[in-house]
Write a protein that binds this DNA or RNA. Structure first.
Lengths: 104, 104
DNA sequence: TTTGAATTTTGCAAAGTTTCAAAATAAGGC
DNA sequence: GCCTTATTTTGAAACTTTGCAAAATTCAAA
């Protein structure tokens, strides 16, 4: 059990994993990929024609998203299908919209 | 008035501004700065001793956060005080926690 | 088992980020 | 006006990210 509610002085290390997630989301092409996956699973070739980059580049973006647990992949024959792994991802987008709409 | 609810095919450009916000949050030192500012306004020197970087580096991080509207600054004498500009920023962190806790 | 299709990995170049140090700016007190 | 303090800007070095192309891998089908 981790010691909770003890507000020790924080260090950059305490924010490393949060920063990893935000950094993965900090690229327009990856956000477009996530948006497309919001409609359901897609194979790499389909995602590639969607974003208009080299397929190897798309494969790399997808692996960034997979490493932080945002998407999962499933091979079926020669194709690999990607899909969103976290239902609550859409919440993050919601909050971002709120953040950007907020003028305070 | 912008055309709403017309789900046109999206492009990377549609996600540029969202990506800018996420990218700004994608650095542990900046998250630590934001966390500190959650307690209230702080001058640059105080924030500098907190994160343990050169003051010029901290000033740069703060300007990244200011450019995307995350913090505001106010000069009082020779000091500049920074504070959070968006109340809903804490929501974003909440959602992140949810995201990371979520195992689906 | 060789071929073909889909994807990933590797190598590389260009562009961007992070950091410190030094120079520049801003504001207040003498 | 000159000096001190606080901050920002600029410049340079190290490193990371992004992207393409070519080579390697994976799998199915002929």
């Amino acid at each position: 059990m981790s010691s909770c509610s003890v507000s020790a002085p924080k260090t950059p290390a305490d924010f490393r994993s949060a920063a990893e997630v935000f950094k993965a989301l900090g690229n327009p092409n990856r956000l477009l990929l996530l948006d497309a996956l919001g409609q359901g699973e897609r194979c790499v070739a389909d995602l590639t024609s969607l974003v208009g980059l080299d397929i190897s580049t798309v494969s790399n973006h997808l692996s960034v998203l997979r490493k932080i647990g945002m998407v999962k992949d499933e091979r079926r024959g020669t194709q690999v299908f990607y899909s969103l792994r976290k239902a609550c991802l859409s919440n993050l987008f919601c909050c971002l919209d709120e953040f950007q709409a907020c003028d305070e």
